[in-house]
Design a protein around this nucleic acid. Structure first.
Length: 765
DNA sequence: CACCCTCGAGTTCA
DNA sequence: CTCGAGGGTG
């Protein structure tokens, strides 16, 4: 990897180099000890490697800096002070060269094929993110198990390996060579790893950062100084480790002897399997490089469906004869390559910490980073929650930070890389005033960590947020009123008449109001307004689509004033504006609970709103209710009751309702007999709680929930022991896992449909 | 006083 | 989808 600052090494004086090497040594040792002894990951792997390479570089240029105990002379662990005996591998345990793209892989394959001079079959397999182990069997009996170490000498972990259930202590069958060394990877399966961490929590012990560290940590435990209870736990943990073998390191007899037992890598696996060793089922022999790429892409997309962590794909030349012909470099064989998937943890620059204001006025700091690819997508922002979290993470603006995707989705800043600071970093200071409207920020109540902007009525960010919320799926589900629409309609300089100063005017909008709206085009990355070539600001008219030539040849500029949108030739072309208006029109007649959600009343989400709507039947009835009457509703307590009373006491809130009513929004359930009217009881699912997860054939996500409620059941959002059924389809995730743990009744889409129609009795065996 | 649950927020992708 | 915070319920 070309690294600019490596060049500068040539200009260093010995003294400077010595200083830098000293700093790096301290830090690398610190990180290494943290990693190997406490299984803590403080920096991304790339960063650690970078530091180590730099140190090597310095030592090469200034040999006097080299010392016996430099981290460059040992690979991980504490080579001198280790509690495990050193073991010399019969044949060097090489590592693999890496490629990071299809192009690099194609180059590698082309080179190998050129050198081989004949057709090549490749064996593709998963690269397990675990711990490389060498098993030595003598006369079919496991003699030693050792870590890779520096490739030549590893650590003897035979005692611990003996507890790993999947590793045979004697090989099955007969006719094995007197001495054979088998290489493989030791790891925890993902589900086991999760259980393990849960157990750690239960036992009040530290959790492992990832499955590889857990495996490494488990194998490196020592029995000394342990109580019998601890010892039992240790053995139990070792027993849950998995191993998959992927090759033979050394035979007692030369492979080119009279009876070569196998002639291909894939046949080797068959042999290993016969011997009773665990081999992976996820491998394939392909006849050309492009099929290997298909394998790479397949597992890139299905990475999470494999039972263990993988960090790439290993592609090997299948024919063993060719292994000898192609040979190896000092580090790695030429007949195999590792295709590395994009790392889940990367470093990037923290450019700034800025705050955003949500629809409730809550002020949230988030990290603005130099865009990087993490786990398959480009990330430029990550939330930092609040100022306490910023402080706890210890990040400064300008820091290089470690970034990952929590749960493979949500970007999360782990912390700073302290040694890359150059002194120009500065601390984040929480602003005292709202970044959008300048109002002094204050906690909602004494002792709250979160600050809020109290200017709910006219803070642009809050108005924008609320308008967007009205259109959101959980509320009135208005197409065309998303983030872009909401900000276009509410930007202060929009010539909407009357201006959409709050959500009150939303349903009174006319074509005339929104057609002329122009918004400035901002650069997604910088947030700056883009400019036209002539220096003017670039604008867009989101509610006017390019007018197609209608009827006549010419396409005169559209002029709403002149045309009145009516004449045949001037009839308004299908536009985003029309779409929005028709969607707004539709929304006016949607269920009352949706209207309630759309009002952004604290603590009133879909569940509370449904309960309130069903009980009271109209906004007016809710407004007229006393605190006690409100709290009498199932699912509504004193806090929500207070929130409602407080909300209706604000005159501009009431104005929203009035204006919506004027515009034709339906604020009551037609035919509802009034507060407390007997609820439509019964239904096949009354008293039944169901959680729907994954994609259920024949239902949309929303549709499934609606159907449960329509049948009189309760649609819960999370799985608990009170859940009666979990309807799970393909793609179900943690909820299904939890349901299995709790031993709940899990049903498929067909059973779900039966349940909806006939109730739980229909599913009884 | 425990759970158990809902709310709210951020983020990204098909 | 996931997490933390905080409300509701038994």
């Amino acid at each position: 990897m070309a690294n600019q600052d490596v060049n500068s090494a040539y200009d260093l004086t010995l003294e400077q180099a010595g200083e830098e090497a000293g700093r790096l040594t301290t830090r690398v040792v610190e990180l290494r000890d943290a990693y190997y002894e406490r299984d803590e990951v403080l920096v991304a792997d790339e960063e650690y490697d970078r530091m180590l390479h730099r140190l090597e570089e310095l030592e090469r240029l200034f040999p006097e800096l080299q010392s016996q105990d430099s981290p460059t002379q040992t690979v991980g662990g504490r080579a001198e002070t280790t509690l495990f005996d050193p073991v010399r591998h019969a044949e060097r345990m090489l590592s693999l060269d890496n490629v990071f793209s299809r192009e690099e892989f194609a180059e590698w394959a082309a080179k190998v094929e050129r050198n081989a001079g004949r057709h090549i079959d490749y064996l593709c397999e998963l690269k397990i993110d675990g711990l490389a182990i060498n098993l030595r069997y003598e006369n079919g009996v496991l003699r030693t198990a050792a870590t890779r170490g520096d490739g030549v000498v590893g650590e003897d972990v035979t005692e611990n390996i003996a507890f790993v259930k999947v590793i045979p202590t004697t090989l099955a069958g007969s006719g094995h060579p007197p001495i054979v060394e088998v290489r493989g990877e030791v790891f925890f399966e993902s589900t086991i790893f999760e259980q393990l961490n849960a157990d750690q929590v239960a036992a009040g012990e530290r959790v492992f950062a990832n499955a590889r560290n857990a495996a490494s940590g488990s194998l490196r435990q020592v029995a000394d100084n342990k109580t019998p209870v601890q010892l039992e736990r240790m053995h139990k943990r070792l027993g849950r480790l998995s191993m998959l073998v992927h090759g033979i390191g050394a035979w007692a007899q030369p492979r080119n002897g009279d009876e070569a037992p196998v002639d291909s890598q894939s046949a080797t696996y068959g042999l290993l399997k016969q011997w009773g060793l665990p081999t992976s089922s996820h491998f394939r022999v392909v006849t050309n490089a492009s099929q290997a790429v298909e394998f790479i892409e397949y597992y890139g997309a299905h990475r999470s469906s494999v039972e263990h962590e993988i960090d790439g794909i290993v592609i090997k030349v299948d024919e063993l004869e060719l292994h000898d012909e192609l040979g190896a470099t000092s580090r790695a064989p030429r007949w195999a390559i590792a295709y590395k998937y994009p790392p889940e943890q990367v470093n990037t620059k923290l450019l700034d910490i800025v705050v955003s204001v949500g629809r409730t006025g809550r002020v949230t700091p988030f990290a603005v980073m130099k865009p990087v690819r993490v786990a398959g997508s480009v990330v430029r922002q990550a939330t930092l929650h609040n100022q306490d979290v910023v402080k706890a993470k210890g990040v400064l603006i300008g820091d290089t930070v470690v970034l990952r995707k929590a749960g493979d989705v949500i970007p999360e800043v782990l912390g700073p890389v302290v040694e890359l600071r150059d002194g120009t970093e500065r601390e984040f200071v929480m602003p005292s005033n709202c970044p959008e409207c300048g109002t002094l920020l204050a906690p909602a109540k004494e002792g709250d960590v979160d600050l809020r902007c109290p200017n709910a009525r006219s803070c642009p960010a809050q108005v924008r947020g609320r308008v967007e919320h009205v259109g959101s799926r959980g509320a009135l589900d208005i197409e065309g009123l998303g983030e872009v629409g909401a900000s276009a309609l509410t930007q202060p300089d929009v010539p909407v008449d009357p201006p959409l100063a709050t959500e009150a005017g939303l349903f009174s909008l006319t074509l005339r109001d929104i057609f002329p709206i122009t918004v400035r085009v901002r650069d997604y990355e910088t947030g700056l307004v883009k400019l036209n070539p002539d220096g003017s600001e670039r604008t867009e008219t989101p509610y006017r689509k390019k007018r197609k030539t209608a009827g006549r040849g010419a396409d005169p500029a559209f002029d709403p004033e002149a045309s009145e949108f009516a004449g045949d030739e001037w009839s308004v072309p299908s536009s985003a504006a029309e779409k929005l208006l028709s969607e707004l029109e539709l929304a006016k007649a949607k269920d009352l609970w949706r209207i309630l959600v759309a009002l952004s009343i604290r603590h009133v989400g879909p569940v509370a709103a449904r309960a309130l709507a069903a009980y009271f039947g109209s906004v007016e009835a809710i407004r007229a209710a006393t605190r006690e009457e409100l709290a009498a509703v199932d699912g509504v307590g004193s806090i929500i009751a207070d929130a409602l009373i407080d909300w209706f006491a604000v005159d501009w809130h009431v104005a929203i309702i009035d204006r919506w009513a004027d515009a034709g929004v339906q604020l009551s359930i037609p035919g509802h007999a009034g507060p407390g009217a007997a609820l439509a009881a019964g239904g096949p699912l009354s008293g039944v709680t169901i959680v729907a997860t994954g994609s259920l054939e024949g239902f949309t996500r929303e549709g499934a929930l609606e159907a449960i409620i329509a049948a009189g059941g309760k649609a819960a959002s999370s799985v608990s022991k009170k859940t009666d059924f979990v309807a799970a389809g393909p793609g179900a995730g943690s909820k299904l896992t939890k349901a299995e743990e709790l031993g709940l009744r899990i049903i498929d889409a067909a059973q779900f449909a039966t349940l909806l129609e006939f109730g739980p009795d229909a599913l009884k065996e």
